[in-house]
């Protein structure tokens, strides 16, 4: 394994973390969905590079799935959905963007701090890669917690799934069957969520999840 390929792999994973940060402060839904496409595109590049570096041809399939579905179909479909819902011009009220960014930086530091000692004896190709993948997962979760709009929560969920995909690509030995089934389950989750979004909208005239809470009779 050449140092060069390790460097490229780590750079791509670092780009993915950067894309997660880009998603974190987008307040307009179309911009957020563009970032989601970018996120998935970087994932596809990273997985493809892993396929090349590890000499594992089945990872090319994973990369292709990521490129077609996650970077292509899903963001485009979500964009059209946003337009049809008529919320593409709305600004999402995200509180404390600066604080969220700081928390995100803390999460990246935490995941590096946790993963690097654990993977001390692992393959150098995998080492920092796993730590960065964990950062992507944590950032996705952070975004799900801070957002109120159902569409941005879906985007956050998908970015989280991208992080899991990244780790899986580095884990060397994840069977293709598992990979494909995960991809399909994400697709189905996306379809179900899409249907639900319209139903929620039909009923409440908004996709702000606060309306759901109010409907359940909760105090905030």
């Amino acid at each position: 394994m050449s140092t060069f390929s390790i460097d490229v792999a780590n750079t791509l994973a670092g780009f993915l973390v950067l894309a997660s940060f880009l998603m974190l402060y987008q307040v307009r839904l179309p911009a957020l969905l563009n970032m989601l496409g970018l996120h998935a595109f970087i994932l596809a590049m990273a997985v493809a590079w892993q396929a090349y570096a590890q000499g594992a041809p089945e990872l090319y399939v994973t990369a292709l799935i990521a490129l077609v579905f996650k970077a292509g179909v899903i963001p485009v479909a979500l964009q059209r959905m946003v337009v049809r819902l008529g919320i593409h011009r709305e600004l999402e009220a995200v509180t404390g963007i600066g604080l969220t960014m700081l928390a995100g930086i803390g999460l990246v530091a935490l995941s590096l701090e946790v993963m690097l000692p654990v993977t001390a004896h692992a393959d150098p190709l995998t080492r920092e890669y796993i730590a960065l993948a964990l950062s992507v997962v944590l950032l996705g979760l952070l975004m799900m917690v801070t957002r109120r709009n159902a569409v941005s929560q879906v985007a956050a969920f998908l970015s989280m799934e991208n992080g899991i995909d990244l780790a899986a690509a580095a884990a060397q030995g994840m069977p293709l069957v598992v990979e494909i089934s995960i991809a399909f389950s994400v697709l189905i989750a996306f379809l179900v969520i899409g249907v639900f979004l319209f139903r929620i909208r039909e009923r409440f005239d908004t996709v702000d999840v606060r309306a759901l809470d109010e409907f359940r009779g909760e105090r905030r």
Binding site: V114, L138, L141
Partner: peptide, 24 residues
């Protein structure tokens, strides 16, 4: 039993981060 979805998510998130912190 009666939290909002976001709070449930936040609980999962905080628990995960706390465990990772403990590990670190």
């Amino acid at each position: 039993q009666f939290l909002t979805i976001r709070r449930y998510l936040a609980m999962v998130f905080v628990a995960l981060v706390a465990l990772l912190l403990a590990l670190a």
